[in-house]
């Protein structure tokens, strides 16, 4: 993996990233479950990208099945509606300017499952979607062509790059209201610098919203053993369980960020569980042992 840059991986869609990570995990790791530290002092390589190239290769290989209804991305498709419900929950926790259309940045957009859906919503101004895997981005662009709505000027733009490579917004107005990292963090070796890079693109009062998996015995059992090895609903090697993050670890990191409001309504969380035959269901408190959504709000006024 060393000869790859990591940025490719980070820009991959979250689903792909998960898949890629799983492959990494297939190589024996000896580490025991330990806390993940978000401190930026940990080795963050000079390659200036959060992307894990093994993940990029993994998701490149999966690109063609991205939009296959019965393919390996099925669980991701089914998870998409709860993403919107959760985003609405976050946005509705604070007063907003009525009728103001939203700018989205989807990091790790994959085949575009979330990016397309966000771009179709009537209150969306624009969606920028980035992913480090060129194959995956070309799948996303090809699929975008099948919907005339998504071809409208400025509605949905894909870029094959990492968050570090994306030019920073020139003003608060062009920064985004919602930055999404769905099923991404678990594929990233150094989440803290990655999330900090994301924050720079969000306007004051905007949201960093994502989903990931808690690092517990349950999540190892469901996402590694059952999903990948036994049931095979997720390609083997998709997840690296050691990279899973606990909700309290995320929140602890958010509290160290001066421009983030991680208290009260500025911190949102929702645990979801996949119920075969019923899809993803919200289960209160399941965030501590399974898949969960999180949202942190950037402070209304920038901290100096």
């Amino acid at each position: 993996m060393s000869h790859f840059t990591r940025r490719g991986l980070l820009s991959l869609p979250s689903g792909l990233r998960s898949l890629i990570l799983g492959r990494i995990h297939a190589a024996p790791t000896t580490s025991l479950p330990q806390p993940r530290y978000f401190s930026t002092s940990s080795a963050f390589h000079s390659d200036h990208s959060s992307v894990n190239q093994d993940e990029v290769s993994h998701f490149n290989a999966l690109a063609s099945s991205w939009w296959d209804p019965q393919g390996s991305s099925r669980l991701l498709h089914l998870m998409n509606p709860p993403r919107h419900d959760f985003i609405r929950q976050c946005l509705n926790s604070h007063i907003r300017e009525p009728g103001k259309k939203l700018r989205y940045l989807d990091v790790g957009s994959g085949g575009g499952i979330f990016a397309e859906s966000a771009a179709r919503l009537p209150n969306t101004h624009s969606v920028t979607a980035i992913d480090p895997s060129p194959e995956v981005v070309s799948v996303a662009k090809r699929h975008q062509r099948q919907d005339p709505l998504l071809l409208e000027q400025g509605r949905l733009s894909y870029r094959n790059c990492s968050i570090e490579e994306l030019p920073l917004p020139t003003s608060a107005e062009t920064a985004v209201d919602v930055l999404t990292v769905f099923e991404v963090i678990e594929h990233i070796r150094q989440p803290a610098p990655f999330l900090q890079a994301c924050l720079k693109h969000i306007k004051p009062g905007g949201w960093l919203i994502g989903s990931t998996i808690a690092r517990t015995n349950t999540s190892w059992f469901t996402t590694k053993l059952m999903a990948e090895d036994v049931l095979g609903v997720v390609p083997r090697g998709t997840h690296d369980w050691n990279q899973y993050i606990q909700p309290h670890e995320l929140r602890a990191w958010a509290r160290t960020q001066p421009d983030v409001d991680a208290e009260f309504q500025g911190w949102q969380i929702m645990g979801v569980v996949y119920v075969p035959g019923m899809g993803w269901k919200e289960i209160p408190s399941s965030e501590d042992w399974g898949n969960y959504f999180f949202g942190v709000r950037k402070k209304q006024v920038e901290a100096n």
């Binding site: 209804p69 089914l78 509606p81 919107h84 419900d85 966000a118 179709r120 919907d147």
Partner: peptide, 10 residues
């Protein structure tokens, strides 16, 4: 309401 393509199998 969830941004789906209403013609898709999803």
């Amino acid at each position: 309401e969830h941004g789906m393509d209403i013609g898709s199998t999803w």
